[in-house]
Design a protein around this nucleic acid. Structure first.
Lengths: 139, 139
DNA sequence: TTTATCTGTAATGAAACATAATACAGATTA
DNA sequence: TAATCTGTATTATGTTTCATTACAGATAAA
């Protein structure tokens, strides 16, 4: 699994928490503990898909453009990490009965595994994550 | 996901196909298209957990010691790739409400995601994979 | 009993990948 | 006009994965 997924979820949760106020890539990066450029790159992707708006220049930053309750982790997974369930491995030997056919066999299994995981991530929204964070914070 | 999982599945499928005959790490490696030492390392793990038997020396090799229909992919996943669903990422900032609590929140989500994937892999046995391979071979 | 062939495993090297860091153009505000 | 941001390309650095080398120990066959 790509850690961009985690950065995307964290950033959106952060923005949801701010309820419309702008946050700079620097502020978000400090919360996530990664380099600001990396945050900008991930958020750039989210912007292109309409999840956030960005404002350049002094006093600029990022803000959510969708309701946190409507953004599922599934969407973010597909955006950042699609195909990550299936590991990479060399093409097996096509001259061998097993080698020639196991790849497509395993492919089907991995594809279904990923599909199921996506369905699992559909259950969670950014609002859910934010709620969980708040619950844990108030203990 | 660790590609050792794929090597384990491929190797066992190969051995199941041989129905008791010995195969060397070299032969298996040629089918999988990886280095023989890597095959030996993965099979060494499988041996320690009772899935196969190995015989050293000239004329030696590997053979299955369990019925292919009883070995589920789930067991092999856990043996080779447990924990691979959750990506690695730096510890978020503990001074931030979000940073301090999102890790454990996401942790729970990833743990459940993995548990579900394991349950999915329980559906498939090495015999199933071998059958699929044979089906595809006879088209 | 010697030689060839295997496994078992450690250790080193190379390639691939992920991430950080640097740099700078363009936008925006004050 | 200076300061502050995003956007993005490019270049390092670090990490992980994988292949390779090396060699001890086991076994079979000549």
């Amino acid at each position: 699994m790509n850690s961009d997924f985690v950065i995307a979820v964290h950033s959106l949760t952060y923005l949801a928490h701010l309820e419309g106020k702008l946050a700079t890539s620097d502020t978000i990066a400090r919360s996530v503990s990664v380099h600001p450029v990396r945050v900008r790159n991930v958020l750039s992707l989210l912007r292109k898909h309409g999840y956030i708006r960005s404002k350049e220049g002094a006093g600029g930053g990022f803000t959510m453009s969708r309701s946190p309750g409507e953004v599922t982790l599934d969407e973010l997974y597909r955006l950042t990490s699609e195909g990550s369930v299936k590991p990479k491995w060399p093409n097996p030997n096509p001259q061998c009965v097993i080698g020639a056919n196991i790849e497509s066999a395993m492919d089907g299994i991995f594809t279904d595994a990923e599909r199921q995981m996506e369905r699992y991530f559909e259950r969670y929204t950014i609002a859910d994550v934010l709620n969980t964070v708040h619950e844990r914070a108030s203990r």
